[in-house]
Design a binder for these strands. Structure first.
Lengths: 97, 97
DNA sequence: TATAAACATGAACGATTGCTCATATGTTCA
DNA sequence: TGAACATATGAGCAATCGTTCATGTTTATA
């Protein structure tokens, strides 16, 4: 336990963490931590423009960190799985020592 | 558990994950996961130039992810704490589904 | 003290990133 | 069908990043 397992995968790992390496994306993920939301609600909750949110959601979706579902003209996004929450909480633990 | 705790801290969190968002730095941290090493050994273990390793170690040290200790003209680096291992393993879990 | 070894550092440059602005796509409803 | 709403997308640009190359700093040893 708490022992590094793979000596490879460094590239994929870096790719994964790149998705967490931006304040806007973190805000979006934290916001989605409260529950599924549509793009407009994410934008107002985070104070980021609709366009910027949409661009970042694309990045998060590509990284398999969020999933979405269309319902009429509204598209609802949610965190892909509990790994996302866990990774964020792990980071918060580290920050708060 | 597995519930996002803080609604703020987004900036600091992004800063933390930026340190993991580069393949070279991940390679260095995985290498240090095997145990403490000097700069030259890290360079040969990762196949990265001494200069690049040194630059990245500075970044990792600034992020409090590694610590170092001078012994003569050799400087030995090691992972700062088990959070680093945990964060990397968490990422590997996510990658390997 | 002069030299070499181990590491750090600064400048410079190409590559990537995240935003804005304008516009396109898709959907509902009158 | 046409207007309005929700979201996505592409171009363009400033900012950040990671490397290399050259050189500086610190320590040991002849």
């Amino acid at each position: 336990m708490d022992e590094i397992k793979s000596a490879d995968d460094a590239g994929k790992l870096a790719e994964l963490y790149k998705a967490f390496a931006d304040e806007t994306r973190v805000r979006i993920m934290i916001s989605l931590g409260e529950g599924a939301k549509c793009v407009g609600d994410i934008a107002s909750a985070t104070g980021v423009s609709q366009s910027a949110v949409s661009h970042q959601l694309k990045t998060l979706k590509y990284a398999n960190l969020v999933s979405c579902q269309r319902d009429g003209r509204v598209i609802t996004y949610e965190l892909a799985d509990d790994h996302v929450r866990t990774i964020i909480n792990m980071g918060l633990d580290h920050i708060h020592e």
